Every structure is written in structure tokens, then in C-alpha cells.
Simulated scan of single mutants.
Amino acid sequence: MSILYWLIIAVVFAVAFIGLVYPAIPSVIFIVAGFILYGFLFSFSPYSYLFWLVEAVFAAVLFAADYVSNLLGVKRYGGSRAAIWGSTIGLLIGPFVIPVAGIILGPFIGAVCAEIFVHQKDMKSAVKVGLGSLIGFLTSVVAKSVIQLFMIGYFLWTVL
């Protein structure tokens, strides 16, 4: 039975990684759900205050990495606050409008549209900002993947 329990926990963690590129899935919630599932299926005894504190710090760093990566990507290429909002909206809406490709195209199109319609930038400048948004998104995915791996690694180190 414990193999089945571990498989369920692994699936919950896998869903958290899907959430890295599909923002409708809250990655942190699924990681914490895996911790809680372990507690219910096995035992909460391995979890100390230190465990929850370390995981909370990782979660805060995860949120910060997401925000900072997008911000730096857009700002580095001359984007405005509107481009950051456009990129975020594009990231949320893109996958629904253009399945699969919308994950990549959404932030790019959102940032470009924001720069053109809000700040009346020319197409070349707006596309440059859109590329910055895309670079920020991809950087964010890599950074968050590493942080989530640390969260799960610390969990496994704690319980095994």
C-alpha cells in the first residue's frame, strides 16, 4: 500500500511542475498538498517547526523568483509597468486562447500589445519588450523548477 501512497504523492508533485508553465495550476499548493498527503497517509511526526519554516522560505523565494524574473526581463528590454501587466494577462489567457503555444505566445503578445496600445511604442520597440517578457518567463520557469526541486528534496530528506 505504501507504494500506492508514494505514487499519489509523486503525481501531486508532478502536477506542481506542470504548474510552472501553466499558471492556472498553483504549484506551491500542490507541493504543500504532497506534504500534507504524506502526513495523512504515513505520519506528520517527521515535520518539525524547522521543516515548515524552511518550506515557507522556499515558497516565498518561489513567488519572488516568479515576479522578479518577469520584471527584470521586461525592464531590461525597455518595457513599462503596462508591459508587465500585459505579459501577466497574456500568460493567464494565452493557454486558453491558443492551447499549448499560448503558454509561450501569451506573455509575448500581452507585452507587445501593452506597449503599443498604452505607450504608443513602435512595433520594433514593442517586439523587443515582448522578447524580454518571454525571456523573463523562461528564466522564471527554470528558477522555479530549481526551487521546487529543493522543496521536494528537503521534504524527502526530512521523511526518509
Rank of each mutant, 00 (worst) to 15 (best):
V118P: 00
L138F: 12
T139I: 09
Y22Q: 04
L105T: 08
Y38E: 06
V127R: 03
M151P: 02
R81P: 00
N70R: 08
R81D: 14
Y154A: 06
A33Y: 05
A111P: 01
V11N: 07
L41K: 01
M151L: 05
R76P: 02
S2D: 14
G39L: 11
F35M: 12
L160C: 07
H119R: 14
I104V: 15
H119E: 13
L20Y: 10
V57Q: 06
G102E: 02
V100Q: 06
I18W: 08
A65W: 01
L91Y: 09
F35P: 00
F155N: 03
V97K: 06
I103H: 02
G34F: 04
K128A: 07
F150A: 12
V15T: 10
M123S: 10
I109D: 00
P26L: 11
K121V: 03
V74E: 01
F63A: 10
V12C: 12
Y38H: 15
I103F: 03
D122V: 09
K75F: 09
M123G: 04
S125H: 10
S80Q: 10
V74T: 11
F30D: 03
A33G: 04
S87P: 01
M151I: 05
L71D: 05
Y38F: 15
S48R: 07
P23N: 05
A16P: 04
L20P: 06
V127M: 09
I25K: 03
V15R: 03
F13P: 00
L149V: 12
W157I: 13
T139C: 10
S69M: 08
A56Y: 04
T139W: 04
F117M: 15
Y67P: 04
L50I: 14
L92S: 06
G102V: 01
L91G: 11
L37R: 05
F42I: 15
I104Q: 00
I25T: 07
D122N: 15
G110M: 05
K75Q: 11
P107Q: 02
Q148W: 07
S69D: 05
F30A: 09
L149G: 13
L160I: 14
D122C: 07
L160K: 12
K75L: 10
V61Q: 05
Y38T: 11
F108D: 00
L41S: 02
L71I: 08
D66S: 13
F96T: 08
I109A: 13
D66Q: 09
L20C: 11
K124H: 12
